[in-house]
Computed example of a mutant assay.
Amino acid sequence: MAKPFGFGCTQLGDGTVTITHRGRTAGTLRGARAKKFLGEVESGDAQLVMARWTGAYKFGNERLARNHPRNR
């Protein structure tokens, strides 16, 4: 799959799905969870789905928080 945000996934022969982020394993799904994940990937934006399932996504306020006087 394309990796503009650094996410990728591979499906193994036994049905296990491994999600990677920038080359490192971010999560492993098996059974019903793997099937549900694959269904969501096919129906939506794969990168956003993988980010949501791994919890490795940003909320959009990081830049503002970094520039706040309290955080300098």
Rank of each mutant, 00 (worst) to 15 (best):
F37L: 15
Q47K: 03
R33S: 11
E42S: 12
G15P: 07
R72N: 15
R63V: 12
A51D: 08
H21S: 13
E42L: 14
T54N: 08
K58I: 10
L64I: 07
K36T: 08
N71H: 08
G60M: 01
T10P: 00
P4W: 04
T16K: 13
V17W: 03
E40A: 01
A65C: 10
T25V: 15
N61V: 10
E62I: 02
I19N: 00
V17R: 07
G55N: 12
T20S: 13
R30F: 04
G23L: 03
G60I: 02
K36E: 08
L64C: 00
G60S: 05
G44A: 14
Q47I: 02
F37Y: 11
L38P: 00
R33A: 15
Q47P: 03
C9F: 12
M1D: 08
V41R: 03
Q47S: 13
A46Q: 13
G8I: 00
P69K: 10
H68T: 11
G13S: 09
T28A: 00
T10V: 12
L38F: 02
Q11I: 13
G23F: 03
T20Y: 04
L29K: 11
G6I: 02
A32P: 00
L29C: 01
L12Y: 09
G44V: 03
T20F: 05
A46W: 09
I19E: 04
A34V: 05
G23R: 06
R52C: 05
Y57S: 13
F7R: 00
L12A: 14
N61G: 06
K58R: 15
T25G: 00
N67Y: 05
R22V: 01
I19C: 07
K3P: 00
R24L: 09
R33T: 10
W53C: 04
E42F: 10
Q11T: 15
L12P: 00
G39V: 03
G6H: 02
H68F: 15
T25M: 11
G55V: 02
Q47M: 08
Y57T: 06
G23E: 04
T16S: 07
T20W: 01
C9Y: 11
P69W: 10
I19D: 08
L38N: 01
R63G: 03
N61S: 07
T54A: 08
H68C: 12
G23V: 01
R72D: 13
N71F: 11
G39T: 09
T54Y: 03
G8L: 02
R30E: 14
R72H: 15
K58A: 13
L48C: 04
G23D: 06
L48T: 08
G6R: 03
M50I: 04
L64A: 11
G44T: 02
A2I: 13
G13Y: 01
E42A: 15
G15W: 09
G23C: 05
Y57V: 01
T18V: 15
T18A: 06
F7W: 04
L48F: 11
F5R: 15
K58Y: 12
L64Q: 11
K58H: 14
R30S: 03
T54E: 12
A65V: 14
G15A: 06
V49E: 14
K35S: 12
N71Y: 12
G44S: 14
T28H: 00
T25D: 10
H21E: 12
K36G: 00
K58P: 01
L64K: 10
A26R: 06
H68E: 09
